[in-house]
Design a binder for these strands. Structure first.
Lengths: 250, 250
DNA sequence: GGAATAGTGTCTGTGAGACAGTATAGT
DNA sequence: ACTATACTGTCTCACAGACACTATTCC
């Protein structure tokens, strides 16, 4: 350890400043498609490119609070609707050159939200909106946000296997079919309706019946479906594993 | 958005400085017990308390590189032995008051290492060593490191279920019994030897035989065991689930 | 010989998935 | 009437866990 390193151990100002931001990969399901909240940047760098909502963490807030605040600012949601949104830490991204202006370490978060109204663009963004994740390929994303989004989507797919968080994409009361729709949308493949139904009801604590049913059957016929609420389980056991995972193993 | 917030969006120096550190929860197995690399702090705050190895991120290194560097510095290992250590990001800890000196956001990492020699204390630490994790309860840990360690241990237990990373606690060639020992140590419960044996060999890509066997049988008798290497799987399918997870589900 | 360990055989229960079938509603 | 959907029944296969057993080696 030389003199510079010794000093640096005690005096962080011996190093150039590092900025800490929080970014949010916010997912929701609209019209059967997985959507992502994105902001079109109004100034350089990456002016005109799409970016994740986020910003500098404030002195008195912790990381999760900062992420929740950024999400609330961009979506314009009140406390009541914010409370139904699941938010967890996704990971930190700190490559030295990920932001051309300075060293920025971003703590990315992942959010699952029920279908929400279109966001009102904040003053520091030219535009904000929910974009289908299928529309991202080919589009130029700011910073390393393409990778953050990829990580977030994979985390979301994985979380649906072991946790009951799929319910967070739905209204407080939902049918098994709607829940199956969440899985099919996030995983990107159809599931067997009958087996899914039995499986969901057999996992302890996943859902609990409300005793009520939908007012009408399906748009194209069928009986009225029973309504369920999220149960008290925090983990699904046994888990609902994705079919055909062979590709990702090696 | 008021004037201060507007400026802060463009000029991070409008906020008080934030320091970014990397910390490492480094785990290894010694004499059948799970051990953790800890440093006894030589100066305030938390002087004399045990803390995770870590330090400030340097301007030109990314987060994983910083964590690997800190680990190498504390253990005194060369590149060859460092390469066999698994390192992954664990999570970020950024509560505003976690460090009394200033705002410090720490990106914690998790490392799995084979049995290593005792570390040589670096100049900025009074003492360094591998401590059994069972010896931690009751001991005063610096900062929020007790929580970081808890999160790391739970992550380690979980990773052994879905990945072949248990092999990272062992030498390049190992027996099924030694591998079972890793699981039993990390999970803290005995496993059925026969079923474990069959299970490990049946998971594609978990281990591959070397064609050789140990020189001697067990210390207290038994045949010579076949030797295996880590296979090419990155995920175990089907997974090796911990027995009796009911407690953690709700 | 006695004891411990490596490794295999077998049985049972659970659960996933395929498939079929019934009941209920919309058009 | 026709069709789509909700939900249930049944069969098969895979696998986890319990138990038993043999073979090998150390003491």
């Amino acid at each position: 350890m030389n003199e510079q390193e010794f000093l640096a151990g005690y005096d962080p100002t011996a190093y150039p400043a590092v900025a800490v931001t929080v970014d949010v990969v916010a997912l929701t399901i609209r019209e059967g498609a997985l959507h992502l909240l994105l902001i079109r940047r109004g100034q350089p760098p990456y002016q005109g490119h799409w970016a994740l909502p986020g910003g500098f963490v404030r002195p008195t807030e912790d990381l999760a609070t900062g992420a929740r605040r950024e999400l609330a600012e961009e979506t314009g949601l009140g406390d009541d609707r914010m409370r139904r949104i699941h938010l967890e830490q996704l990971g930190s991204y700190g490559d030295p050159d990920r932001d051309p202006r300075m060293r920025v370490v971003s703590i990315a978060h992942l959010a699952f939200a029920p279908d929400l109204p279109d966001p009102v663009a904040a003053t520091d963004a030219a535009e904000a909106g929910w974009l289908p994740v299928t529309a991202l390929s080919g589009r130029q994303l700011a910073f390393d946000h393409a990778r953050v989004i990829d990580d977030g989507l994979e985390r979301a797919r994985s979380k649906l296997e072991y946790t009951p968080l799929a319910t967070r994409f739905l209204a407080p009361e939902f049918t098994v079919s709607e829940l199956r729709g969440v899985y099919e949308t996030v995983w990107g493949q159809p599931l067997h309706a009958g087996n899914f139904h039995r499986k969901v009801l057999s996992v302890p604590g996943f859902v609990e019946g409300t005793g009520t049913s939908t007012e009408r059957g399906g748009a194209r016929g069928g009986p009225r479906a029973k309504l369920y609420r999220a149960g008290d389980a925090r983990l699904l056991h046994p888990a609902l594993l994705r079919p055909d995972r062979e590709e990702t193993i090696r």
